[in-house]
């Protein structure tokens, strides 16, 4: 049945993430990972959180938003300021989760504030308005004093480690995958597929659009906190529209509405520029070319056919079919 198939698919996603972590952890313990590689683990994790959460609005809700970096920055500053002020008061085990929670909530509140007026818009208009929001947030942060202004926020304890990031990823996957597979998630996907029909089915469009938007903002905020605690200086300039677009690229590359795709794409896109470092001057050029090729190949029917054939889903379907046959016989 349907539910069994989705359970298997969910398990594959969890399994993939856990396996990747176990391998990395084992390699790290045995000292096989270079310092440089090690420093990339947290950014990979952060990008996974950003990509999967953006997928909720872009892939599942079907609304193009370009303000994800804006929510991330709001969360980052809220979490980092919290950590700076409570560094002496609270132990790490309490401070860091609280900082992440606070960063997420502040980002979610901004999500509501921005979402209520903005979600009336559709398509290109929504994209432009959310893009503007991201830019406004950035300018505001640069011009405020308590955020450190243009010179950046210093003194945040560097608490982010890859095991913590891994735990956050698992929590996020749990929340988002469960949400998608409930009546709330069905309502969100129904709005994407046909807004008018969804409304005629008794679905409160505004509420569910806002829900998807706010949940995505929350996790962007959490990712921001992890980001802020990974570097010694937090500058608002980092969270420009390039970042929002890079997250969008991950979602599109991984496939709209595919959580596993977002995870893989986020990992690849984070590693790719580093892996291409040996190309020196041509690095960004090749990076762009690789992206174009991947996009084209990903959209080609022959490739998707081959990929479907190779995917575990096909084999599970074949095996379960065989089993059903046996049961019937």
């Amino acid at each position: 049945m349907q539910s069994k198939k989705t359970v298997v698919s969910k398990m594959i996603t969890y399994g993939m993430v856990i396996l990747a972590f176990v391998i990395v952890f084992a390699l790290d313990q045995s000292g096989l990972i270079s310092r440089h590689m090690r420093s990339m683990l947290v950014p990979i994790g952060i990008n996974i959180i950003l990509a999967v959460s953006l997928n909720l609005t872009v892939g599942f809700l079907g609304e193009l938003t370009l303000g994800h970096a804006g929510f991330m920055s709001v969360g980052a500053y809220a979490g980092c300021l919290f950590s700076i002020y409570t560094a002496d008061l609270l132990p790490l085990a309490a401070r860091f989760p609280l900082a992440m929670l606070l960063g997420g909530i502040v980002a979610a509140v901004f999500g509501i504030i921005i979402g209520v007026p903005v979600l009336r818009l559709k398509g290109d208009y929504l994209a432009i308005v959310t893009l503007a929001f991201g830019e406004i947030i950035r300018s505001v942060i640069i011009n405020l004093n308590f955020t450190g202004g243009a010179s950046g926020l210093k003194g945040t304890p560097q608490d982010s480690t890859y095991p913590i990031t891994f735990v956050v990823i698992l929590i996020m996957l749990f929340v988002i995958m469960n949400l998608v597979e409930s009546k709330h998630g069905r309502a969100i996907t129904a709005i994407r597929d046909n807004r008018i029909a969804a409304e005629a089915c008794g679905i409160n469009i505004t509420y569910y659009k806002l829900l998807a938007f706010v949940v995505a903002a929350f996790f962007a905020g959490v990712a921001g906190v992890l980001f802020g605690h990974n570097y010694s200086i937090l500058t608002a300039g980092t969270f420009d529209y390039n970042m929002s677009i890079e997250i969008l690229v991950m979602v599109v590359l991984g496939g709209m509405g595919s959580i596993r795709g977002s995870i893989i794409a986020a990992t690849v896109i984070t590693i790719l520029p580093e892996a291409l470092r040996f190309l020196e001057d041509y690095r960004m050029l090749i990076y762009a070319v690789v992206l174009i090729i991947v996009m084209i190949v990903n959209a080609s029917p022959r490739f998707t056919g081959m990929r479907d054939f190779l995917s575990p889903k096909t084999w599970i379907a074949i095996l379960t079919k065989k089993n059903n046959g046996k049961e019937a016989a």
Partner: peptide
């Protein structure tokens, strides 16, 4: 106007939205 990318089951379940 169906939810074309969703299964038949999920389409009807979406209709049941307020009943769940």
């Amino acid at each position: 106007r169906l939810f074309a990318n969703m299964s038949v089951l999920d389409n009807v379940k979406t209709g049941l939205h307020n009943g769940i």
